[in-house]
Design a protein around this nucleic acid. Sequence first.
DNA 1: ACCTGAACACCGTTCAAGT
DNA 2: ACCTGAACACCGTTCAAGT
Lengths: 201, 201
Amino acid sequence: MKDPDSKTKIRRHSQADIVGAALSLLDDQGLPNLSMRAIADSIGVQVSALYWHFPNKQTLLARVSERLLGNSTIDSDADGDIESIAVDFHERLLAYRDAAELVSSSLALGLITLPARPLIHDAAVRAGLDDRGATIAADTIVHFVIGFTFHEQQRMNADSAGVVIHEAATMTVADIGAEADDFRSGLRLITAGIHATVKFL
Amino acid sequence: MKDPDSKTKIRRHSQADIVGAALSLLDDQGLPNLSMRAIADSIGVQVSALYWHFPNKQTLLARVSERLLGNSTIDSDADGDIESIAVDFHERLLAYRDAAELVSSSLALGLITLPARPLIHDAAVRAGLDDRGATIAADTIVHFVIGFTFHEQQRMNADSAGVVIHEAATMTVADIGAEADDFRSGLRLITAGIHATVKFL
DNA sequence: ACCTGAACACCGTTCAAGT
DNA sequence: ACCTGAACACCGTTCAAGT
């Protein structure tokens, strides 16, 4: 409507296209195989073409991180409790292969912000913490979720590669449920700390 | 004494030599520059020589991780409380550039074990948790320490590279002290959760 | 505006061959 | 037992040139 046919640009690839291609490549090849050449190949373009759209690989990966975190879905559980926000964050990371490692690296380079962080901060304030306490609580939970999921996904990769890590080979279906329980238990340990801290104020 | 001169092997480089060279190279060049070629150069040897001593780079790096964690110093604070064990772990990571990222990757690949883990586990049991609770507490604290230190060291690298990350440029000497306080505060949040959980048993 | 083609300066790893 | 020299199959990034 706002762009009549006279102005229909034949842009062969948008940033969004490339990010989408990279995301699905990540999911079925894994982060170690997500090279600029692999991304270029998957959309039928030369590697150098990617550098017209993005200044470097890390920036491209940061956009992929944002996409899988759903940085657009601003609201979602905007006023849930801490636990449900953390569980949602955990699930988004679990939805794509190696997502925790990818997000961890984008975050470390300061190229993304996590939607979950302010949500947890505000929930902590509602729970009774002051601003500084809420910031520390948010950081602690974010570290926990990323660290936990990182290990979780690394084990998934090792399993599917047939690698035996210690005695993990004897893991049954019940153990997978136990892993999810461990996540919630670790989370509850931290939230219990938050509530206990509130009582001292 | 146990090896008379007739048997004095002229081993030109031991594994320990190489690990030591890699460790000091890590400390003044950073993890991204710690290539097999750089390590080989620093001890005056061809890259391929390293592959006689180690099967691959990750294994070499795992031995470096163990060295900087002081996996030999088994005792140290064998029966301290959770907080002092975590603080010691944090200090060992802070002692070498990029140590948190290095250890995180060795750990994810299942190539090392952390001395701090069983120490925290036992301290948690002494505090009143059962075995499963103590395991979860140990993992949660380990995730927190590594995640916190990872970000801490990434910021150190960005600072020394003159990179301005957000408004971090206005950080004063007082803020450095505040950063150390944040570590202890995050830690106390988790230990408060542990003590609160114990009361429910 | 968007992409090609070719190059540069690197990687980790392997392997025959030397001593 | 320990290392050299050379190669293989990759990387991320740059840049002139095309359309």
